[in-house]
């Protein structure tokens, strides 16, 4: 078991707060976008980019880098904010999100944004694409890993289960998937729109090593990832229990902030709540 000093975890937490602050500013400035899922997925992304993954922002094409796929591409603001904070492109560029000519498209585009490994936005493609990268790693005898983040509503998509089958069939222990289990999809709660439970049992039945954690606890994300990395001969999935809209009081658990920008008053309130640290 690793030991974490409090300071290091506090630093990750303060990066996460900054990323949430960026995300809301970007969406407000763009006038559209998806705040809810960007806020729920933030802590996972921060741990991956600032602690777990081997990557080099100055050399995004480094062949041995770990790969990241944001399958729930509508949470692009959080990914862009993390990439900018990590140094892939200037933080100033974040406010060009969704604007004409910007490198920051509404949904991730691997041909436009440094650091984006796969174009996503239509749900359900990311895990299979991640598997492809994992197969290539095995073919090339490379040790890099593939980290894929999925939505819980996205679990409805059949292709995920085709990909789940493939990953365990080919023993892709270099794939680690995270499900952002924030309990809401677009039209309502997942268990009301299309029930996905028992989710852990489903993944287990498909041959995956399954871990369940609090997706807002940095230590738990790190520990679960390290456990997943130690598993041999099968892929791992970490079901991260999260809160949609996490970090902005009135967005937490609020369905209508799935895909709507805050108005001016809401924006100011959110900034107040997210700016409070330092």
């Amino acid at each position: 078991m690793e030991v974490y000093d409090g300071e290091f975890i506090t630093e990750l937490e303060s990066i996460a707060k900054k990323v949430r602050w960026h995300s809301i500013r970007m969406i407000y400035e763009a006038g559209s976008g998806h705040p809810g899922g960007s806020l729920s997925v933030t802590d996972i992304l921060v741990v991956l980019y600032f602690h777990i993954m081997k990557h080099d922002p100055k050399n995004p094409d480094w062949p041995d880098r770990d790969r990241f796929v944001l399958s729930k591409g509508h949470s692009a603001p959080a990914l862009y904010a993390v990439l900018a904070e990590a140094g892939y492109f200037p933080v100033d560029e974040l406010l060009t999100l969704r604007k004409m000519g910007s490198r920051l498209q509404g949904h991730p585009c691997m041909r436009k944004t440094p650091g984006v490994e796969m174009s996503t936005g239509s749900l359900g493609h990311g895990l299979a694409a991640g598997n492809g990268m994992a197969l290539a790693a095995k073919l090339d005898r490379k040790l890099y890993r593939i980290y894929v983040v999925l939505g819980d509503g996205e679990m409805d998509v059949g292709e995920n289960w085709e990909a789940a089958m493939l990953a365990s069939h080919y023993k892709l222990d270099n794939v680690i998937a995270y499900v952002d289990r924030n309990k809401l999809q677009l039209d309502g709660p997942t268990e009301k729109i299309m029930s996905i439970e028992p989710l852990a049992d489903k993944w287990k039945a498909f041959g995956w090593h399954v871990i369940e954690i609090n997706g807002h606890n940095m230590k738990e994300i790190i520990q679960a990832t390290n456990e997943a990395k130690s598993v041999k001969g099968k892929p791992s999935v970490i079901i991260c229990h999260t809160i949609k809209g996490r970090g902005v009081s009135f967005m937490e658990g609020a369905l209508h902030f799935h895909g709507k920008a805050p108005d001016e008053k809401e924006f100011n309130q959110a900034m107040k709540e997210l700016g409070a640290v330092e």
Partner: peptide, 8 residues
């Protein structure tokens, strides 16, 4: 569709 971009 606008802001969502080419994917949509």
């Amino acid at each position: 569709v606008g802001g969502d971009g080419a994917s949509h």
